[in-house]
Design a protein around this nucleic acid. Structure first.
Lengths: 100, 100
DNA sequence: CGTGTAAGGAATTCTGACACG
DNA sequence: CGTGTAAGGAATTCTGACACG
């Protein structure tokens, strides 16, 4: 399922090609905790397709002038927001089923 | 869809970790045309998750003593076989629908 | 704050070849 | 045939730092 999307297998060079972001930028966004790549035994970073998607979102926000701190909050709330939305929908469904 | 599974993004070192095959073996199976990795601008090989799956199949066959030439044929017919099977099923479905 | 760059070292990958068999 | 290995070079990645602002 999520295995391919979330498996950390790409070197930073590939991520650079896929996103167009510089190595410096990719490492900096990690430092600001917007992404969390894994490390190989010898310390080279490994990224997932999911990380690449996040980086593309980050690039969009940065172009709009949003600071990394704000982007981090957005990324967190966008995830939580989806969860929240799903829970609310669940409650609404339960509500309508009761009144049906 | 197939984008993550077939996108060539992994270095040979990662493939080695994922499959347990030696670099020599991975390169040799390419030489025998069992897999077709892509290359970066400077010539380093890039593999997909799909390639990794194929390599795992190859490893199984090799343990059984099957030669690379036979494995290549198997890989080709297993793909074509699936296609053929689907076409036959389609015809069967059409047949039964006509007689229904 | 966000990003570029030069610096030096360490690890990776590549190819062609010899070896065994 | 399939795989290991030593060889030398080229390219990658890492970190900490200085720079601009």
């Amino acid at each position: 399922m999520a295995s391919y999307k979330h498996k950390k297998v790409m070197s930073i060079g590939i991520v650079n090609e896929l996103t167009g972001l510089s190595l410096r930028q990719i490492r900096y966004y990690e430092e600001r905790r917007l992404i969390q790549p894994e490390r190989t035994k010898r310390g080279t970073r490994k990224y997932s397709f999911s990380d690449v998607e996040t980086l593309l979102q980050i690039a969009d926000k940065r172009e709009e002038g949003v600071q990394t701190y704000e982007i981090r909050k957005d990324l967190q709330t966008s995830t939580k927001g989806n969860l929240k939305e799903r829970m609310i929908r669940g409650q609404l469904n339960a509500h309508f089923q009761m009144n049906k």
